[in-house]
Design a protein around this nucleic acid. Structure first.
Lengths: 222, 222
DNA sequence: ATTACTAAATTCCGAGTAA
DNA sequence: TTTACTCGGAATTTAGTAA
């Protein structure tokens, strides 16, 4: 099993699901995997020969589904990744580049109900502004999946309602305690908003484009 | 997401952890990966050239750790597997072969505190005996990782204490409601114990060596 | 014991193309 | 449009060693 075969099998999983069937074409798969149509054709036949997938080829395209063995192989890799990535003592980190946001964060943070809850749950009164980091969407999801959020309730004002949000304790650049804020109803998928007690830009001397890392800070089990 | 030498990188993750460093040797890695020492040596150098890992080679062996990029790549694959494997509409299944256990299961199930809790949580009084399935350890872990367990508390008798256990609702062969029982402190890693309302061996006409599938049964969200 | 070079054998890739 | 064959060249592997 070479890497190439593995990523093809992974692509079949993504398109067909674990039990389902995908209708695709070798050309289409080749584009995704950055190789030639011929290579996909050959590798699919090789994977079929190893009983890792089921294949029905015709002049209309290919129908692909994972065999029980193929399913097991992918689940095995998943389990191994799971064990190694979720192992304790692996402080999960996320890195991103500083960018200038729309100053919405500052507005929301100035609202007393958010202020109060964040102060209570984080243990410090947050600076009224956010550090916006441009991050990879996939990384952000992986990061949030591993973290245990602090829930901040939404509330109603006279004019409108404000949604809840989740806060995740982090260390910025491994040093400064802070929190990653994630609104329950968010639109931007590539932005991580970070709050801390003082202005992070000043404290770390940051400017747009600088790279910053966030390290997940788990609750102490006291 | 394309990468050469994925399985070698995965092995580094397994040995070093996400942040740590592994002391190993190309010969040792080659044995695990079923290839030659020379291939591992070259692939490590190639992975280093692509900034996927950090390497320090000496006549004593190699020290390996994942670079941030390597970490990201593995986390990316993890996330993709996560999304596809955990997607709803993917009834997670586990299959194994029937074997004859040591009849311990029957003893434990006969104890009233277990009986009572299982009846309450499962909704049926379990037959006083278990169907033992020989399963692949990795598959079992993947299966349990996806399921939401029902917790059965341990208790003390006059002579000894009995540990807690987890029960997972399943369908046997896609038809018969049952539960996979997993003691919190278990020794066997290759055995799945299944309980149901009636004796599964009789109901399904099973004999040792027969193949049986378990389909995860999620709670209805009523 | 290591790592890693050389060189020969093997495998793999993809352009061209048939069906 | 497909899939998949041929085949020449590129890439990869590994045995034999050097250090």
């Amino acid at each position: 099993m070479s890497s190439e075969h593995f990523f093809l099998l992974l692509e079949v999983l993504k398109q067909a699901g674990l039990q389902g069937t995908a209708r695709s074409s070798t050309t289409r798969l080749a584009r995704v995997l950055h190789c030639s149509q011929q290579t996909v054709s050959r590798q699919l036949r090789e994977l079929e020969a190893r009983s890792l997938l089921l294949r029905r080829a015709s002049p209309l395209g290919v129908e692909l589904s994972l065999s029980p063995q193929g399913q097991r192989l992918l689940q095995g890799v998943y389990t191994e990744l799971c064990q190694s990535l979720q192992a304790s003592g692996n402080p999960c980190t996320l890195s991103g580049t500083v960018e200038t946001g729309l100053m919405e964060g500052a507005y929301y943070l100035s609202l007393p109900p958010y202020q109060r809850q964040l102060r209570e749950k984080l243990g410090f009164p947050p600076f009224k502004g956010t550090l916006n980091l441009h991050v990879n969407e996939t990384d952000l999801h992986a990061f949030l999946a591993q973290a245990k959020p602090l829930h901040v309730e939404g509330f109603q004002s006279e004019e409108r309602s404000f949604g809840g949000l989740k806060a995740y304790r982090v260390l910025v650049n491994g040093k400064i305690p802070a929190a990653l804020i994630h609104p329950d109803r968010t639109t931007h998928k590539n932005v991580a908003e970070v709050i801390a007690e003082k202005k992070l830009r000043d404290q770390l001397g940051l400017k747009d484009g600088d790279r910053v890392s966030l390290t997940l800070q788990e609750e102490s089990h006291a």
